[in-house]
């Protein structure tokens, strides 16, 4: 592990939408630390042959160190983590989590905060809202969901936020007109997007076309590692060769071989696990490397990316 782990007990489980379950976690030893809005933890679930490790945003009030809350959407294309959380985890169970880390913090210099949530992407904003309110910040929440599956917390949010909350149920034909919404924002607005890749890509495209400064557009999308073709990786420093099967990530295969790679989010976002590649073609699946860095082909994010051929040689 790159970071210390914290033992927690599940003290509450609530179905907050047909596909989303909320878990309340309490510290077993001592107390949690307060965190900053937008933080996530990596939850480690005991499973065979190796533990599942998934990143989830903390959705409780950042100043509340009594408990942490996370929400997990059951994923159709799951490697098992979300299914495990939904089917195997019971109240009273023990899990371990990493300390909170934040790759999606609000920019407090913003004149206005425009929050765009898609489905379970509402979770980091649940932690933003208490802090935005305490600071008296100008904000709007636009929440896109499917009424029959996602849309957790929407009644509560509407009741608490009133006219600052805009709800769009795609199954009721309610569409968020991104072009209009983003065109009419005042100078000093920062936009934050958490949700499916298409929503993030859509907002990035529209803001670029509208002339928004890129540094005012913030997004977070953890990529769940997807399976791929098996390959071999040669470690140049030791000369060892490690096999990576189709269902295993490169990071997991290295961990199984007891090769320590510094890492944090395990979802292709944070950049901690970047590793130099000496030869072999890479299938980049992360959100961290720039197009130019991908083009160079000399580094890989082993938490989600894979070899596109049969073999990679990496500088480890």
């Amino acid at each position: 592990m790159s970071t210390d782990s914290i033992r927690v007990r599940v003290s509450g489980i609530e179905q907050v939408s047909p596909l989303i379950r909320e878990f309340t976690l309490e510290a077993i030893d001592g107390e949690f630390l307060a965190f900053s809005p937008g933080s996530h933890v990596v939850v480690e679930m005991p499973a065979e042959p190796r533990p599942h490790r998934n990143a989830y945003s903390l959705l409780s009030d950042p100043r509340d160190s009594g408990c942490y809350r996370i929400a997990v959407r059951l994923q159709e294309q799951s490697r098992g983590g979300s299914v495990y959380m939904h089917e195997s985890v019971k109240v009273g169970d023990e899990l371990t989590i990493t300390p909170p880390a934040n790759l999606f913090a609000p920019n407090w210099n913003a004149g206005k905060h425009l929050l765009l949530a898609g489905g379970v992407g509402i979770t980091p904003f649940m932690a933003y809202l208490p802090e935005l309110k305490r600071r008296g910040a100008d904000f709007e929440l636009h929440y896109l969901y499917r009424g029959s599956s996602t849309g957790a917390y929407r009644e509560q949010l509407k009741a608490e936020l009133g006219e600052q909350c805009f709800l769009y149920d795609s199954e009721a034909g309610e569409r968020c007109a991104l072009g209009e919404l983003l065109a009419e924002q005042p100078r000093g607005t920062h936009v934050y997007i958490c949700g499916p890749e298409e929503l993030i890509a859509g907002v990035r495209e529209v803001t670029e076309e509208l002339g928004w400064p890129a540094s005012h557009v913030h997004f977070e999308a953890f990529a769940a590692p997807q399976p791929g073709n098996p390959f071999e990786v040669e470690l140049s420093r030791s000369g060892r060769t490690v096999k990576v099967d189709g269902e295993t990530t490169l990071l997991e295969a290295l961990e199984d071989a007891e090769v320590d790679v510094p890492h944090l989010c395990r979802g292709g976002v944070c950049g901690q696990c970047v590793t130099r590649v000496l030869s072999g073609d890479i299938e980049h699946r992360d959100e961290f490397l720039s197009a130019a860095e991908r083009e160079q082909g000399d580094c890989i994010m082993p938490c989600v990316s894979r070899a596109s051929g049969k073999r990679l040689v990496i500088d480890l």
Partner: peptide, 30 residues
Amino acid sequence: PLASAVYVCGSEGFMWDIRNLALAAGLADE
């Protein structure tokens, strides 16, 4: 508007004074 651009010339200190005014007005460095 939000989508604006500022171009400035002059002494170095003056240009950075303008940059700081622009940031305070809600513009970004870029």
